[in-house]
Amino acid sequence: MTTPISTVSTLQALLTRRRIAADLQDQMGRASQEVSTGTRADVYRSLGMRSAETLALRARMDRNAGLIASNQVLGNRMEMMAELLGVIRGTAQGVLDLAISSRDAPGATVEAMQTAARTALDQLQSQINASYHGAALFAGVDSGQPPLQGWDEVNPRSGLSPRDVVEGVIGGGFTGAADAAAKAAELETIFASADAGQPARNFEATFYNGTPRLDAGGAPSPRLTAHVEEGVTLSYGVQANDAPFTELLRGLSMLAATDPAQIADPDAYRAWVGAAVDAVSAGVEGLIETEARLGGQQQLLAQTIATQTDRNDLYNSQILSLEGVDPYEAASRLSTLQTQLEATYAVTARLSRLSFLNFM
């Protein structure tokens, strides 16, 4: 009986060894990558059907990271708002400290009250008109322009400047306490934007250029809000037409538009200056409440960011448990592959040196 003998040519053996060496090199490359990165070289091929889990986790982590980034920008904006509210309150407090001693009758500070109020109005215009990343901080939703009109600047919508409005109410001065009280009440109506007879004089028509308190239909205008978490919206808007600002600006405008030292009638002085100082005081108190409310919103945002950061850490841990590799197993596999590759190189080198003459 004849038994066939299967033979393999030296060339075929050499080519086979080279293919094996190339495959081992590829496996070593992937193993080396896994050792250095701690994650699978081909995640989706390694996980198979579980690839959907890591894709879903990564999508959730990306959405969460996007919320963290936008919330951090919002946090910076709110921090700037909080700092400015403190500065605005300080500016007003300086005038109040000066004027309080001369509230009911001319005192030692009466000569400086008008200048101090006028200087404060200029400072407040700059402070209230501050912007962050090109958006006015206290203009509401309509943040594309500074909210506060300059004291001497004519508002093109009304054709009047704030100074025109206040001085128009004061006219030639005060004939007595009743006249001073009536003019103070008229300004209160104007700064509340409630002057139906001459609406062009209203605060929101001449003094203010941001989002009005009420829309054209009489409903409250939307305030600034931010989507800070899935299903959670934070309302954080502070506007220059809020009551603390209008009260503050009303009192300062009353002191800036007339020189208290020139009001001869004591009763008229008490009615006018008293109303002005009370308005500034109410504005300062309102700003304190506004700062407290904004501080609570900042705390809520900080807690939200902390929760989202912890959630991102959890997502990352879950992804690593799916995509990661055991560093000891990967290093052992790399060492084994290196040994196999070295052996393959040795055999391949020996085969490459063989020829028919070696057996003659």
Rank of each mutant, 00 (worst) to 15 (best):
L84H: 13
A177D: 10
E186P: 03
G94E: 12
Q123T: 07
D26S: 15
P222L: 05
T339L: 13
V325T: 10
T175S: 14
E34A: 11
Q297S: 14
E188S: 13
G171H: 01
F207G: 03
V141Q: 13
G168K: 07
G237M: 00
A276Q: 00
S131M: 07
G168A: 02
G75S: 14
I68L: 01
E53Y: 00
Q125Y: 00
L234T: 01
R63Y: 11
A21S: 15
G150D: 04
Q33K: 12
A279H: 01
T109F: 08
S352G: 12
I170M: 05
H227F: 11
V238K: 12
L148Y: 05
Y132P: 04
A65L: 02
I100T: 15
L160H: 11
R77Y: 09
G173T: 01
T339R: 13
S36I: 04
E111A: 15
L248A: 10
W151A: 07
D326H: 08
A216Q: 14
E229M: 11
T16Y: 00
P260Q: 04
A330R: 05
F203K: 01
A180C: 04
Q27R: 15
A21F: 10
N202Y: 09
L294W: 02
L248S: 06
A105I: 00
T211C: 06
S193C: 01
G172D: 11
M254A: 01
T258G: 11
L14F: 12
R19N: 14
T91G: 08
N64A: 06
A105G: 12
M360W: 09
S32G: 10
P222T: 04
L354S: 05
